[in-house]
Each structure stands twice: as structure tokens, then as C-alpha cells.
Nucleic acid binder design. Sequence first.
DNA 1: ATTGAAACCAGCAGGTA
DNA 2: TACCTGCTGGTTTCAAT
Lengths: 141, 141
Amino acid sequence: MIDDIDVSILKQLQKDARLSFAEVGRTIKLSASAVRERILKMEDTGVIKKYGIEIDHSKVGYDLEAFILVKVFHGKLKLLLSTIPSISEIEKAYRITGNQNIHLKVILKNQLHLQQLIDKLMPFGDTHTLLILSDVSSNDS
Amino acid sequence: MIDDIDVSILKQLQKDARLSFAEVGRTIKLSASAVRERILKMEDTGVIKKYGIEIDHSKVGYDLEAFILVKVFHGKLKLLLSTIPSISEIEKAYRITGNQNIHLKVILKNQLHLQQLIDKLMPFGDTHTLLILSDVSSNDS
DNA sequence: ATTGAAACCAGCAGGTA
DNA sequence: TACCTGCTGGTTTCAAT
């Protein structure tokens, strides 16, 4: 379904999603059209879910990032799930195993903003907030 | 530093980072070169950190995703931080507040793979693993 | 997977306000 | 400074091989 050439294409796009088909092809000795067809196929099959950008939120006025773990009240899960898309502060949301059942990554302006978000989440469950101090990934996979 | 036009450019790129300058410009009534200059400036100032792709890992043989919270042993933090980049399973790593001090997002093939990773992390601290059941973001911000 | 051709875009120069 | 137009070479796209 996916071969070594596809993997090396994916790795290049992970580093820079705006590389042209021609550029990708040059480094793996393939024509631009061949690269294009492989990438289109990976889009169609859903291997590539989307092309996105990473923003430094602290440079646009959002100085606080946090994880919020929610232990959802009995019967409130469906309502919370349908509410999540309307909360712009939530960057990513997952159902998880464990004592808490929802894991949120949130982007906020400041502590007041965090407080307001927690207030908004309170009707759905008990929250536990972990502030993000710094990104320590430095991941060039 | 950043105005409404920049914000709308960022939103478009978040949806599709491969949009051409011309395409972005068309939807906001701006020339391609104006869009290009704005984007270059946001790259230079670090607002845009990178262009990346989101991969559906389950379609390439990695069926397990998890968060691992690590309560790092006294004196082991620096060593862990320097080890993290060499662990390919770690997609993202953060220092956080709370009882645990490191938050990892990991991509794994299966439970055995998870076990091996936890074994690798054990020397650095006590781990607490939260399996990801599903993505419930549906976030078209 | 490749090539070839038409449409399109990136990058840059030079210009306006 | 922020935007524009016009130009050129490279790129995307699609069809044929």
C-alpha cells in the first residue's frame, strides 16, 4: 500500500510541506509527475490528512498553552463532543483511556482567558489543567 | 505586528499549507506578490514556524497513539531532555506543570511497541500512559 | 513512470501612493 | 511601508506513450 519511496516523500513533506513536486522528485530521482501521482494517491487514501502550518502562538498574542484533562460527568459526553468544535481555544481534542476521558490542547491569551475556558468546561465535567512550560521536542524525524 | 489580513492568510494556510500565493491573494483581493511578502515576513519573524503534513499513522502501520506523562526522577531531567530527540516514537514533547513534569505524544505500532518504549523511559522517571482512543477535534478553525 | 505542451506560479525588478 | 504590474524561468497539470 505504501512503499519506501512514499515514506521518503512523506518525510520530506513533514519537513517542508510547501516543497514542489519537482523538488521532491529531484532528491529521489523521480519525475515531478510521478511524485505528484504518489502524493495524490496518498491524499485520496487518507494517508496524508492535511497540509498545515505551525504557528508560534506566543508571537500573535496567545501566551498560554495548556492541556486540560476532563473527567466527563455521566451523560454529558455527547454534549461535550458536540460543543468542542465551537470552542476556538481548543486546538486538539482526544478521547483517552484513564481516570479522565477527554484530553484537550488549548491555546489561550492569558490566565484570565484560561479561567473563562475552564468555566465554560465546568458543566461537562471535572477539569485538570496542565500548563505547558516549553516545547522540548526538537524533532527532525 | 500582525494585522487582520495576516490572520486571514494564516487561517487559509492552516486549512491548506500548499495554497499558492496567487490563490491566497484571490480570496482576500490582494496581489500574489503582496501575499508573498506578508508570508515571508511571518516566516522571518517566526510567526510561521513550519509547513508540515498531518499523517494518518494508522494507515501506515502505526495503530497506537498515546500520551505518556513522566514524573522525572531527581537529577534525570537534563538526560531525558537530551535523549528525547533520539526517540523516533516521540512526536511531541513538552515540559508541563503538575505532578508530572514531561508530557509526551507518542506514535506506536502496537502494544509491544508501547511496552518497549516505556521500558526505555523507565530509567528517567515514573510513567503514566493514556491511550488515545480517537481524535474528536473536527477543528476547522 | 516518463515526456511534452499549455496554463500557471514563484521570484524579482521597477513603479505608485 | 505596503501594495501593484509585468516579465522570465520553473512548475503544475493532463494527455499520450
